[in-house]
Amino acid sequence: MVNLISPVSKQLKSSVPTHFAIVLIIGLAALGACIVASLAFGSRVIGIKDMMDGLFNPGADSFGASVMHQRVARTVFSLCCGGALGIAGSLMQAVTRNPIADPSVLGVNTGAALFVVSGIAFFHISTANQYIALACAGAAITAVFVFGIGSLGRGGPTPIKLVLAGAATSAALSSLISAIMIPRTEVMDRFRYWQMGSVGSANWHDITTFLPFLIIGILIAIASAAALNALALGDEAASGLGVRTGVLRLIASIAGVLLCGTVTALAGPIGFIGLLATHVIRLLIGPDQRYLIPMSALAGAIILTISDVVGRVLGSPGELEVGMVTAFVGAPILILLAIRSKVRSL
């Protein structure tokens, strides 16, 4: 990784994007507000006393304190998943030079879901590690397939071709998922809740299982950031700056697939987070990947956490799954981006 990045780091001058400090402060404040809202709101609103008991008095036996214990794990898990999806979206957009790339748009989430449902149906998987392994394998194979199909023909992997390839692949894989589930009632029961995308069943075991994958993905993304800036200039220009573009794309893609595959395995196929987070941050601070990647993680954590809160409030006394909320918000935005004349390669 050092040989891949160092030639670029020596030639690119470091400059802080305009308004970066302001955006960071506002983002951290918004993150704090989201955390408080996630702890306080749900099918029952938790007061300050119960919130403090749940956070600082583990022995408290009140109903509010017991609810708080569950909400703390749920909030931490949603922050981790949102941050991971934000980074994955930023990496996929940079690698493909496609401003509307996202795990859900490119069909990567559907590929991960197909492998998971196949594991449930044919191999009776049940542990988190088994889910993660199959989801990452499915995400990787689908990503390679979609990029290969989208690269065929004149012009190479253009944004529209990649989106069409992703949509077609996702539709085909969704049909396979239905074909596997429909004859198997027990598989449908286990898969039905998971496929909506939810952080409601989060626990500390899921979080500790997820953290190593999250840390690895973050480290790879940060180490690749400077070289991804050069890649935005084009393969020839990046090669002239000393970047091995093939190796860079492989490493960054592995990080993106690892992050979105792990999230899909544990929380289900939650869509549009990477697309929304990266676009918002790019509009605010520009395209420099050294700042775009960490800020996309912050934005992704905010978007997913507040979407979870909205789903709980609107669905009270039950809840709307967070995957439904993000799809309701993200789908119209994707349509607007796709029809804009300015949508082109980065």
Rank of each mutant, 00 (worst) to 15 (best):
V2S: 06
P7G: 00
S14L: 11
S15P: 01
T18E: 09
H19L: 13
V23H: 01
L24E: 01
A33T: 15
S38P: 13
R44M: 07
I46W: 02
K49Y: 01
A60H: 05
G64S: 03
V67A: 09
V76A: 14
F77Q: 11
C80H: 12
L85F: 14
S90F: 03
T96M: 13
N98P: 15
I100E: 07
N109P: 15
F115S: 15
F115K: 11
G119N: 10
A121L: 05
I125H: 12
S126M: 04
N129F: 14
Q130K: 09
A133V: 15
V144S: 00
G156E: 08
V163K: 08
A165P: 03
A167R: 13
L176D: 06
E186T: 04
N203F: 11
I207G: 07
T208Y: 12
I216K: 04
L219I: 12
I222S: 00
A225G: 02
A232N: 09
G234L: 12
D235F: 02
A237E: 11
L241N: 02
G242C: 01
G242H: 03
C260N: 08
G261A: 11
T262E: 11
V263R: 12
F272S: 04
A277F: 07
I281W: 10
I285C: 09
Y291L: 02
S296Y: 04
L304F: 03
L304A: 04
S316E: 11
E319R: 01
V329W: 01
L336Y: 12
I339T: 10
